[in-house]
């Protein structure tokens, strides 16, 4: 019996967004990474094109973090003391992108200074040729204070600056616009909020081709289903032609999974959770792959073994 396979015909497609700029284009990257461009739901190769595979960014910090899981400390070792070394190690572990998170304070306990932020970013740019995403510490005022000088000092690099949120998007979007960078629009697990922030940022004049959206996700067991469905809905809206949802999606899975007890802690947890390391890596990997299958274009991870597994899964998924 010949079964006629129903194919969805989509009128819209996701913007292709290129991260990083090579020298010829005003930057210093040795390679760029393009995400997005999908013309169909994730990996439905039989009905539409997925020109760019989802990619993995590895999260590093500007200094050794105080609150990361011992499993991560074990994996990265002394590289964590130096952002440049850490970036190199991440690249070796298979990262497609480096995501640098600036700390709230320096190791002396004082707030991170703009100069320190710029130095860290420059050090990482010097150590790796991969495109870079830079996130502020997550407090509106300090984010603005640090990201503006970083953006200015790296003009033309097509860095990705994070994070624009609905109450604090103007400054970051403006500096990205002025210095040829990209931004991430982050909203709290809601299709409409995501769309609204994209509209607000694009209303400022930043082209949609320079915006990534982060609809936010919880880790497995901590609200992954909300992120999962929001991403499915956003991607369907994009393919149906809704311009304000046609942006590639990024999710910060590392920070979410490694703050869960399942990832972070080895002692004093139920025996039924099994081996700590394997469980923790499974936690990060399954969160990532599940969200990639729901439409994530960039997943930010922390553990090198998860990077390996997620990349293997992507290779498999991209096989036509």
């Amino acid at each position: 019996m010949a079964v006629e396979i129903p194919k969805d015909t989509w009128t819209g497609e996701v913007h292709a967004v290129t991260l990083g700029a090579i020298e010829a284009d005003g930057g210093t990257r040795t390679k760029t990474v393009t995400v997005g461009g999908e013309k169909t739901l994730p990996f439905m190769h039989f009905e539409g094109e997925t020109p760019n595979a989802p990619v993995v960014a590895v999260e590093i910090k500007d200094r050794r973090p105080d609150d990361w899981s011992p499993l991560l400390e074990e994996a990265w070792g002394s590289a964590m003391d130096d952002p440049a070394a850490w970036a190199k190690a991440a690249e070796e572990a298979g990262a497609d992108l480096i995501q640098l998170s600036l700390s709230l304070t320096g190791s002396d306990g004082n707030p991170t200074t703009p100069q320190a932020a710029v130095d860290a970013v420059k050090a990482v740019l010097g150590a790796t040729g991969l495109p870079l995403l830079v996130f502020g510490p997550g407090q509106a005022d300090l984010d603005n204070e640090l990201l503006v000088p970083v953006a200015e000092a790296t003009k033309g690099e097509r860095l990705v600056l994070g994070l624009c949120e609905d109450k604090n998007y103007r400054t970051i979007a403006a500096t990205a616009m002025a210095n040829d960078h990209l931004v991430i629009a982050r909203t709290a697990m809601d299709v409409n909020l995501a769309k609204q922030l994209n509209i607000l940022i694009s209303d400022m004049g930043l082209p949609l081709e320079r915006i990534l959206m982060d609809p936010t996700t919880g880790a497995l067991g901590y609200g992954i289903e909300y992120g999962y469905s929001v991403m499915e809905r956003l991607r369907m809206a994009a393919l149906q032609g809704d311009a304000m949802t046609q942006l590639p999606m990024i999710v910060t899975i590392g920070i979410e999974t490694w703050k869960t007890k399942e990832g972070k802690v080895g002692d004093g947890v139920p025996e039924a959770w099994g081996d700590w390391k394997e469980r923790a890596i499974n936690w990060e990997t399954l969160t990532a792959v599940t969200l990639i299958e729901s439409a994530a274009d960039i997943v930010v991870l922390r553990h090198p073994e998860s990077v390996k597994r997620v990349k293997a899964a992507v290779t498999d998924l991209m096989t036509v």
């Binding site: 497995l220 067991g221 609200g223 289903e225 399942e262 099994g274 081996d275 469980r279």
Partner: peptide, 24 residues
């Protein structure tokens, strides 16, 4: 069977089959 393999899958199954119509 190993618990570190099965536990994440059991949780994922709960999550995906949660009724999304209920308020978050």
């Amino acid at each position: 069977f190993s618990p570190e393999k099965v536990y994440p899958l059991l949780v994922l199954r709960e999550n995906i089959y949660t009724d999304p119509q209920k308020p978050i």
